[in-house]
Design a binder for these strands. Sequence first.
DNA 1: CGGTTCATTGACCAACCTCAAAGTACGTGG
DNA 2: CCACGTACTTTGAGGTTGGTCAATGAACCG
Lengths: 207, 207
Amino acid sequence: MAHEMPRIYPDQINRDLLYAWGAVGNKYEKGDVIFTEGEAAKYYFQVEKGSVRMYNMSHEGKEYTQGMFYAGQSFGEPPLLLGETYPAAAVACEASVVIRLAKNSFQNILEEYPAVQRTILDTMARRAYQKAITARDMMISNPETRLQNFLRQCRLQAGNPPGLLQIPFTRQELAHFTGLRVETVIRTLSKMAEEGKVVIRERKLYC
Amino acid sequence: MAHEMPRIYPDQINRDLLYAWGAVGNKYEKGDVIFTEGEAAKYYFQVEKGSVRMYNMSHEGKEYTQGMFYAGQSFGEPPLLLGETYPAAAVACEASVVIRLAKNSFQNILEEYPAVQRTILDTMARRAYQKAITARDMMISNPETRLQNFLRQCRLQAGNPPGLLQIPFTRQELAHFTGLRVETVIRTLSKMAEEGKVVIRERKLYC
DNA sequence: CGGTTCATTGACCAACCTCAAAGTACGTGG
DNA sequence: CCACGTACTTTGAGGTTGGTCAATGAACCG
């Protein structure tokens, strides 16, 4: 599925700089695996085109989406910086192009360009900040609040436009983001629609 | 309560450097508030002595501990770097001393000392990484697995010593860390003790 | 038209939470 | 040393929420 999310951020690291340091762009089809949970981190990744999903899956088949990444955004840096393994898997959500740079070159760029290091620092801070908020919502909130918070994040990601925004996710995808079941998402959204908190028209969700 | 956690990390930023840039050390008694949820971030904080807890509380009184910070560790940087408000409150867990540095000075240090910026970068990466793991555990796991994962984190924090490690938290505190209720923690730990997964002697927990 | 994916609904159930009560440890002050 | 207060732990009974399972309906697409 192609998630229509606007490209509101510039490239995390300038693509020409990446290529100059030996990065290569790889094509992925929908569903292709970029890396798996538990694998050692060896590359810096940056989405050039398309979208990427990071997620966990439990033994019993439960699934949790850690995050979505769109054109210009990088992903998987924390374990790369720390020399750890990936805490989640990454797959392409649609036909995508992802730039890949070897760990050594990435470290060299960070040393060479303090401004880039500062960009990555802010990105990591943003990542930690978002996750703290998500954790708070997940731990102390009911399904309605969890959905509402996720939808708010969606609006922010989309640049908080005036008027109704169509949410580009299926009920199942919303379930994976919020850690709920499809049926719970559906029932909660129906209730919220009745109460005017969201709008459902022809099965499409707006907020 | 004084949490006996070994000081295994050196100061995040050298304290003399902090003082040279105008930082001051503040004393807090047990329970004193350092900052509250929703407040604008204005300072860099680093624990000099004692321990600090960051946590969220819901309207219905549910509580979630985002993290504990001990001597040498900094906290609350993400919103400071991003110009956001605090996503959680911070309180002293015991009589503590916390070094405080104004935001401007902190930014100046980062620009002036790339090595310090790199340290903070690694810390932010570590923070994001830990939170990704925590989120995974919370979303897709049952109480036993959640507790087990938390206890594993405790062991890692303590330097993964050989033999049994006494866990320096009450049942209620474990509940706050894992998002469970006291009673659920107690019942789950009892079951785990029966199965030899943890040891309970005189109400104290070891693993 | 047939197949696939997504959305929806209802009945049922179990895990975890809630509430209430009581037991245990520990420190303090008389 | 004892009495008391406080904080922590434990147990049981019962309730609710959200998950599970099964079936059906709607949209989409080649």
